[in-house]
């Protein structure tokens, strides 16, 4: 993917300014620290940029109604995912699991041992410090995070993230490949790059699956700047 260097530099500057601005005005210290750490990342070459692939399991798709059940995350350093840094946490919520237990295999009993949502968020962002967040269909996961932050602290924050689904969508459009319904699901995207099928469905394995997909996409797209990935 080629890009105009001048415009990229401009976009980088704009993002940097926005991140610094958000960090300065953020009343939650750990979140401010996180946002500030991202601004520093913008000068790194794409090949070295540190990432954190993550995934949330939720009770549904509506942030204002549904709850986060579990969080999984795995760091990516340069060309590698490191499993020593893999993390998974169940999140205790106010309401029961309901119907979605069938999908995730998480039952209420497990959640009693889970961390409170706030502690889970603090831990997630501590792990994400100095790393760009990566998720498959990131807008959904990010909206749950920002909603939780708003709910806990009463502040609005915008979190940049790399969306492997959007990247795949873009790539398919550019290469004019036809795609079928469901062709942008994680498993379908992975298949296109010859990545193996991971049968289990939990937040950590999905985070790993998403991280591997990003490595494959990066090697196929050869982006010149992280800006291309964040768009």
């Amino acid at each position: 993917m080629s890009s105009v260097p001048g415009l990229t530099a401009l976009a980088r500057w704009r993002l940097s300014r926005r991140l610094n601005h958000e960090a300065e005005h953020c009343a939650v210290p750990w979140l401010a620290a996180y946002l500030a750490s991202l601004a520093d990342l913008l000068s790194l070459p794409v090949s070295q940029m540190p990432l954190l692939a993550f995934d949330l399991e939720m009770t549904g798709l509506e942030p204002s109604v549904d709850e986060i059940l579990s969080i999984g995350a795995v760091p990516i350093d340069g060309p590698r995912l490191t499993l020593t840094g893999a993390w998974h946490s169940l999140v205790a919520g106010d309401t029961g699991v309901g119907q979605s237990a069938c999908i995730h295999g998480i039952v209420d009993q497990d959640l009693q041992q889970g961390t409170k949502l706030e502690r889970a968020l603090v831990e997630l962002f501590a792990r994400a410090k100095g790393r760009w967040l990566v998720a498959h269909h990131a807008p959904l996961d990010i909206s749950f995070l920002t909603h939780a932050i708003e709910h806990l602290y009463g502040i609005n924050v915008s979190l940049p993230a790399i969306d492997t689904m959007a990247l795949e969508h873009r790539r398919l459009q550019m290469t004019q490949q036809p795609w079928v319904e469901g062709g942008l699901r994680l498993a379908a995207c992975r298949q296109r790059y010859g990545l193996p099928l991971y049968p289990a469905h939990n937040a950590l394995m999905d985070a790993i699956g998403c991280g591997e997909l990003l490595l494959a996409q990066k090697s196929a797209m050869q982006p010149a700047s992280v800006i291309e990935l964040l768009q």
């Binding site: 490191t82 499993l83 790059y193 591997e212 090697s219």
Partner: peptide
């Protein structure tokens, strides 16, 4: 051992 693993992707193009 499994937790010490690192995962990398190598495209044929490389």
């Amino acid at each position: 051992a499994a937790r010490q693993l690192e995962i990398a992707y190598f495209p044929a193009a490389s």
